[in-house]
Design a protein around this nucleic acid. Structure first.
Length: 505
RNA sequence: GGUCCCGUCGUCUAGCGGCCUAGGACGCUGCCCUCUCAAGGCAGAAACGGGAGUUCAAAUCUCCUCGGGACUACCA
């Protein structure tokens, strides 16, 4: 077994979504597992859709997930450039060589004509693929089309009969018949190149030996295979590479094998897309999903280690991952389970680390400045311990912590109406003096509040809730006595006094 | 329509002929605990799409059927 050389090659349009991230992850795990190389290639051959912003976003999302690449953007490597828009001359030369040898031919139909042909075929119940109309044009016909101002595309001549069979690492043996595969375009009329060519050339030139990608590309595989064969025949690609000063020695390399991964789908069983809500990796970051949890969860979307193991560290995943345990059926991306796993992971974090990971979220919501003051540090650290059991995502901590970092209490009207009434005024009056001279720690405060409740012949809740609302502004909070202990006594007394005005009746 | 892929609790899955009265996790329901919210503990409901075979024995093998999906672009 040679060292794995795998690649992740998204088209940079839109954000990196979880489906793409899962594909990247499986490739990455395989590379790390076999001590191989993980190549990150940008497939921006379609200038219409590719954007620089999207590419930057993908680079950032990959970094956040911890999927560092050995070759690719900002890292470079021996087979660059890794952005296909910078490899145009290579593809042109390869296409020209294939044309010269007669493996591909120029076809002059316009997109409109092709569309009409397709519609007619569908109406008549024929397969809608390109029928090969311009396969054998005479020079006169070509000249006539050119004279009309038409620009040709380049199409690969696919075999008329026979079958193509390949072994897929997750699906086993897959067979297609060549007669079902129409001649396909590798060079557009504007001179740019399609996925088929760019992908085949680069996979060969970069020495990729395993291609793991979405199942949606399964039926593209025969074309890929055909192109490999044509590019490798008589050292064509080696020559093209050398003539154009691009690195790569494909003739020495092993032909890539394939692993087609099950699709990630939404609740409607359709492939994941924008309309399924948050599917962008960055969206999960904003919500406060931890990257190691997203990685763990993504690994489980279509792969399992055994009957019961779910929580795994990245190192364990690297050690245990293999394509032969990848599932064959599409997986629903279940965010409820993701959140649960995230909550479990948060519970494992020590106070200091949780505080540290919470800080950017608090900062982005304006709760704390970039640099915390020592009292803010202490408060954050103390709160972390109380927050831990009640949040599933980091962002959920924000509303729970806000009352203690912000100067003004934001009143929840419902909470005020429900809890600052009846004997609440009495309670607030009585609680001030009690808290004034109690030891300022959670246990003592709790004891004092309970004693007060008993003295007033009230349920503990009847005392706790008015105080909670007075201090936090809400009926829900971290445990009250422990929370009070983290705050300045003067602030607590102040808020209790201020809340008296809000008591109804 | 054609080609290819797939089909176990609501969801993700374990299962590769007897260990399955089908296991785990999330979710859900009930109870306990409780200063709110959580967390935690205990209990519970919940699946082999259907039909024929093969076999002493089938979730596991074969065929048919039904259902879902992908592809069918000068997107990737």
């Amino acid at each position: 077994m040679p060292e794995p050389r795998v690649r992740f090659c998204p088209a940079p349009s839109g954000w990196l979504h979880v489906g793409g991230a899962r594909t990247a992850l499986y490739n990455w795990l395989h590379a790390r597992n076999g001590n191989g190389a993980f190549v990150f290639r940008i497939e921006d051959t379609d200038a219409e859709r590719a954007t620089d912003e999207s590419m930057q976003g993908m680079v950032a999302a990959m970094r956040w997930l911890g999927l560092e690449w050995d070759e690719g953007p900002e890292v470079e490597g021996p087979y660059g450039p890794y952005q296909q828009s910078q490899r145009g001359p290579l593809y042109s030369a390869a296409a020209a060589a294939l044309l010269q040898r007669g493996d591909v031919y120029d076809a002059y139909e316009t997109p409109e004509e092709l569309e009409a042909e397709r519609d007619a075929a569908v109406q008549q119940g024929r397969p809608p693929g390109y029928a090969g109309g311009h396969r054998n044009l005479t020079q006169e016909q070509r000249d006539a089309f050119v004279a009309e101002g038409r620009r040709p595309v380049l199409r690969v001549r696919t075999p008329d009969d026979g079958v193509v069979t390949f072994t897929d690492a997750v699906r086993g043996e897959v067979t297609f018949e060549w007669k079902d595969i129409p001649d396909f375009v590798i060079e557009r009329a504007d001179g740019t190149h399609t996925y088929y060519l760019a992908n085949a050339v680069d996979d060969l030139a970069m020495g990729i030996n395993l291609i793991a990608r979405g199942e949606d590309l399964l039926s593209a595989t025969p074309r890929q295979l055909l192109l490999y064969e044509l590019l490798l025949r008589d050292g064509l690609l080696d020559r093209v590479l050398a003539d154009n000063a691009y690195p790569g020695r494909p003739s020495d390399a092993v032909l890539p094998t394939f692993a087609h991964l099950p699709l990630l789908v939404g609740e409607d069983r359709k492939p994941l897309s924008k309309r399924h809500g948050s599917v962008a990796v960055d969206e999960f970051r904003r919500q406060g999903i931890l990257p190691e949890v997203l990685v763990n969860f993504l690994a489980l979307c279509g792969w399992s280690y055994d009957a019961t193991t779910e929580k795994m560290t990245v190192d364990e995943l690297v050690e245990r991952f293999s394509f032969d345990r990848v599932n064959r059926n599409a997986a629903f991306f279940d965010t409820a389970k993701l959140r649960s796993m995230n909550g479990d992971r948060i519970k494992e974090l020590p106070d200091a680390e949780l505080a540290e990971r919470l800080q950017p979220y608090f900062r982005d919501e304006g709760l704390v400045p970039d640099l915390l003051t020592p009292p803010q540090q202490t408060l954050l650290l103390g709160l972390a311990g109380l927050l831990r059991e009640r949040i599933q995502t980091l962002a959920e901590a924000v509303p729970l912590a806000a009352p203690y970092f912000l100067d003004d209490v934001v009143w929840d009207d419902k909470a005020v109406a429900k809890h600052l009434k009846g004997r609440a005024g009495e309670v607030l009056d009585a609680v001030g003096p009690v808290l004034s001279d109690v030891d300022w720690d959670g246990e003592a405060i709790e004891g004092a509040l309970r004693a007060l409740a008993e003295r007033m012949e009230l349920g503990v809740g009847k005392v706790m809730q008015p105080v909670r609302v007075a201090v936090a502004g809400t009926a829900v909070s971290t445990p009250l006595p422990q929370t009070l202990a983290l705050l300045d006594r003067s602030l607590v007394l102040e808020r209790i006094a201020a809340a008296k005005e809000k008591v109804a009746g």
